[in-house]
Computed example of a mutant assay.
Amino acid sequence: MATVVDTDRVEEAVEKVFGELGVNCTAPLIVLGDRLGLFRSLAGAGPLTPAELAARTGLVERYVREWLRAVAVAGYLAYDPGADTFALTDAYAAVLADDAAPTALIGVFPGLAALWADLDRVEGFFRTGGGMAWGEHHPALGLAQERFTRPAYVHGLIAAWIPAVEGAVPRLEAGARVADIGCGHGRSSVLIAERWPRSTVTGFDPDDAAIARARSTAAAAGLDGRAVFEVADATGYPADGSWDLITFTDSLHDMGDPLAAARHARRAVAADGAVLVVEPLAADRFADDFANPYARIGYAVSTLVCTPSSLAQPGAAALGTMAGEARLREVLTAGGFTRVRRIAEESAPLNILLEARP
């Protein structure tokens, strides 16, 4: 029998997919707006004609005009047809034009190039298994991660998340030893060292190139050895019970053996110290993630980046970006921590923050 097609459902599907095509076609325009300073020039400027924006930026008016129209149709700019002017609202400026704003998301867009660049390799993993480490991805991925997480770390990690760890601030103010595991480009390590100058932070990551960049960032910040970086995985740093605070900032799920990482951290942390685990927001049941604002991004990144990262390492646990609180607690408890509590929920709408203690 011939299949009866519900034309209304087909129209809904076409509308959905066509909308996705529009979103994907707009992403390179957002990157151009960032690279060329268009968003920054529009911020706070009020309505501008294409010629006025071209004059402000020193760019070719015809290209500027087409870019403005494309981005306005996508909903990012307000348009006045009578005056033929375009304006960036303060709300969108806080997301697209100011890297220091806690709401900044502009840093994510350049990283999309890496997802496309590495797609052929990921396709191969679907067929044969295996994976690739973070350091094997297109360089745009790590740079985007560093830029995107900086405002989250400034306004979250430094201002609210670490202060929510019981007793952490007094110890950091007095002078603590901090281990930042899976530190990547070292942005979190540098920020901790800058905020608490009496403390020393050591960042550990298995990627040589990431550690080289982290060392360069620390040197540029003039931290005088208060933030140092070593090439080591999550079980390769000293487990001598002398670390006052150990942090896993968006890194535990990327590891091949998160349980081994937790066990090592349990041996490494001081008896009265703490481990802070920062992970993306995810529900314990997949069915509940359909209401999660982060889920769409989280599962995509997990498929293309984080799961391949884990499967490239010994252990190959493939915890996934969207592991959820219950699974993270299981890992920490099995690793030997006797007290695990969730903290700072009000300041981390897109993260799960767990404080673990021996």
Rank of each mutant, 00 (worst) to 15 (best):
M1I: 11
R9V: 07
E12I: 03
A13I: 04
V14E: 01
F18G: 06
L21M: 13
G22T: 05
N24T: 05
P28V: 04
D34V: 04
F39Q: 13
R40W: 03
G44A: 02
L48M: 15
L48V: 15
A54E: 05
R56G: 09
G58T: 06
L59C: 06
V60I: 08
E61G: 03
W67H: 15
W67L: 12
L68T: 06
A72N: 06
A72P: 07
V73M: 12
A74K: 04
Y79D: 13
D80L: 05
F86A: 06
F86D: 00
T89A: 06
D90R: 04
Y92K: 09
A93H: 03
A94P: 01
V95Q: 13
A97T: 08
D99Q: 08
L105A: 10
G107P: 04
F109H: 04
P110M: 00
D120N: 14
F125E: 11
G129R: 00
G130I: 01
H138S: 11
L143P: 02
Q145K: 03
P151H: 01
A152P: 00
I158C: 06
W161E: 12
V169P: 11
P170R: 12
R171S: 09
R171D: 05
E173T: 15
A176N: 11
I181N: 03
C183L: 07
R187K: 12
S189Q: 09
S189R: 07
A193D: 00
T200W: 02
T200L: 01
F204V: 00
P206Q: 02
A209D: 12
R213C: 02
A214P: 08
S216T: 14
T217M: 08
A218I: 00
G222I: 11
A234S: 14
F248Q: 03
T249N: 13
D250P: 00
S251H: 06
R263Q: 15
R266S: 09
A268C: 09
V269Q: 00
V269H: 01
A270W: 01
A271N: 10
G273A: 06
G273K: 04
A283E: 15
D284W: 13
F286H: 08
D288S: 11
D289R: 00
N292H: 09
P293K: 10
I297K: 01
Y299F: 09
A300F: 03
C306L: 07
S309T: 14
L311I: 07
A316F: 01
A317N: 07
A323T: 12
L332T: 10
T333E: 14
G336M: 03
F337C: 07
R339H: 15
R341E: 15
P349I: 08
E355D: 11
R357C: 10
